[in-house]
Design a protein around this nucleic acid. Structure first.
Lengths: 163, 163
DNA sequence: TATTGTTATACTCTATAACTATA
DNA sequence: TATAGTTATAGAGTATAACAATA
């Protein structure tokens, strides 16, 4: 009976050198920190993202948001409904079936405050990072994202990409 | 992902230059692709990770797994139970309250096959990436992860880190 | 026919709280 | 008292399927 007690085994994570694994671990931590900070505005990260999206694209439709963020449009419904209930956004009919989304005054103000929080947080993530590494951050992440999207698009059968 | 509305509005994502946002988007895509591939072995990414962890650390306890992966030990219970039911792992008592986890023969074989899939996938993510960028992948991701963990630890009240 | 918005439902991952039995 | 394993429950986030109204 190979007794294993705390210090008899060095419990290490054998995956810490895999990019995809690191991305996932980083993502969870980063998201957690962001949500903590956005809680001051009673916003979740996804709600904040939608506000920024509408701010940058006044008149955007729910279905556009779903496509841009890779969220099924069925899941956008409750998000937009919540923001509308809080009078942060409002809908204007585009035609009989489409509704353009717009920020209200208070919605715009909140979006600005939220984006400020986001930027401060984002900056904190790369604060102190050596310049050569910092220059690689966006290119590396964009590359990884695109690679995953592409390789996923290749997949024929399996339960296809999600979000 | 350029979505267009009647050419009147160019719907763009205003966040695509933010590291944290990119990490999240990349993470979702990468995870989706990995889960697609692991489905051939009837494994989810988290189950695969646990197999690798046990393989690298025979005798590891559930609570250790939780700490290493930042998963609450309550959530490790059903994962380990499933793997045990499939005879991929087994438990050996360490003492009256602790159980060391070990791979069975079939569990080890499956872990090896799974890791092969993981490595192939991970390689595909950085395939074709320019050398200077590739060299930055692990350092950048590790930095971002550490930054988030740290800034999260600073946070006093809010709903603390998760996974 | 395809798209938009919607409802309903289910599954994964994670959190919290509480219990037990041990150390 | 603290730890290990467990149960129960809740809340995000996402998926699928189906529907009505409209383009």
């Amino acid at each position: 009976m190979p007794t294993m007690i705390k210090d008899s085994v060095s419990h290490g994570d054998p995956l810490v050198n895999l990019p995809g694994y690191l991305v996932r671990r980083a993502s969870v931590s980063i998201l957690s920190g962001l949500n903590s900070r956005l809680r001051a505005l009673d916003l979740r990260h996804i709600e904040c993202t939608i506000l920024q999206l509408i701010r940058a694209n006044p008149g955007i439709r729910q279905s556009d948001i779903g496509r841009l963020l890779d969220i099924k449009r069925a899941n956008v419904v409750p998000l937009v409904a919540t923001l509308e209930k809080r009078r942060l956004i409002r809908r204007r009919a585009i035609d009989g079936r489409s509704q353009g989304l717009h920020l209200t005054h208070s919605g715009d103000a909140l979006a600005v405050r939220a984006f400020s929080i986001v930027q401060t947080y984002e900056n904190s993530l790369i604060d102190g990072m050596p310049g050569d590494l910092r220059a690689a951050v966006i290119p590396v992440l964009t590359w990884l994202w695109n690679s995953a999207e592409q390789s996923d698009a290749d997949k024929p059968t399996a339960k296809r990409a999600t979000r």
